[in-house]
Design a protein around this nucleic acid. Structure first.
Lengths: 185, 185
DNA sequence: CTCAAGGAAACTAATATAGTTTTTTTAGTT
DNA sequence: AACTAAAAAAACTATATTAGTTTCCTTGAG
């Protein structure tokens, strides 16, 4: 049950931020009462922390695995991008803006994680690629990663998917193609 | 004064959405009292409408000008991208989510504008480029435009600029480079 | 000095929602 | 069928927030 709650909360928070999502929303999505929700989590803040903890753990695991299994930068980038991005895009501006005010400690930890694990780690893959002459020297790797995340975040919004003909997989492929083409030598 | 208010509101709405921005915020940013603010606009909703009207007018003007002056698709894309994107990025997910609930008519108009003027128009430039063999056939132009907007939106957040060494101009350049490289034949 | 305009502060009314409690419903057991 | 425990649904309380309004204070011009 706890995981179902975290799933639902993650989805909602990523789309609407923290403040905009009510406990009623989450309970209703899950088909449970608020009472049951509070039997599992002490407060709304607790849920936000749980969402963050699980996400960070998952992403850590994926990044470590990719590092171990794939030495080649472009391929590793592709793997990481495929597996991590959608989750990472959840650290969206509305959520962060909200928790910066409402749960500052949580915000700080998310910021640090993002800086360390996302930009440094993924940016590091790109730097490797630059060293090996596979990726253009003239791009700032952090900007590239940010841009990619921004692009993905744009696409994963449910209204966008609903209103348009393409599937999310197609969209991800397209964006990845543009990026890979754009960053490679 | 009205324009100063619209400037400030546009900035705030683009970053924080509609609901999160208070009339106190706007007044304070401008160094005026709420009283003065209400002397210029009847309500908060009025301000949102004013922001939208002005923006759409500005973008319309820019798009028409570019069409008249620049026949070549890649160059036109560059021009449009340079002049329009930052403004367009203001139609962000937080703002749209808020007004969808709070001011549905405004939301509808913004949606239509975005569909017509941004995706169709800019997408149209890209389609032209495809026809002329300058842009890859295998990308969906709408996804490309969305991705680009997402990337830009990511970068223009003030905290991002503050925390990082690159300038906004550098970031825009980088992103544009990646995109142009990624979409061209 | 007076006065008008505008900023700052205080206020009111309304809304929203976290968290809690009560009522109703449901499913299982005897 | 009756009973019971658990959970959903509904209602409630307390608190926070903010749009819009009013009052008080300050400032600058005449």
């Amino acid at each position: 049950m706890k995981n179902r709650i975290i799933d639902t909360a993650e989805k909602r928070f990523s789309q609407y931020g923290f403040r905009r999502v009510t406990m009623d929303d989450i309970a209703s999505d899950l088909g449970i009462s608020k009472k049951t929700l509070y039997q599992n989590f002490k407060s709304k803040d607790d849920i936000a922390w749980a969402v963050k903890e699980r996400m960070h753990k998952d992403i850590d695991r994926l990044l470590k695995k990719a590092k171990k299994e794939i030495p080649e930068p472009i391929e590793r980038f592709k793997r990481v991008i495929a597996e991590v991005t959608e989750r990472v895009a959840v650290i969206g501006s509305a959520f962060m803006t909200d928790i910066k005010k409402d749960i500052p400690d949580l915000w700080r930890e998310c910021e640090e994680f993002r800086e360390r694990e996302i930009y440094k780690y993924i940016g590091g893959i790109l730097e490797e690629g630059i060293k090996k002459g596979k990726i253009r020297k003239d791009i700032d790797t952090k900007i590239a990663v940010m841009a990619y995340l921004g692009a993905i975040r744009m696409i994963i919004q449910p209204e966008i998917l609903m209103e348009n003909k393409f599937s999310i997989a197609d969209a991800f492929d397209s964006i990845l193609k543009i990026f890979l083409e754009g960053i490679q030598m």
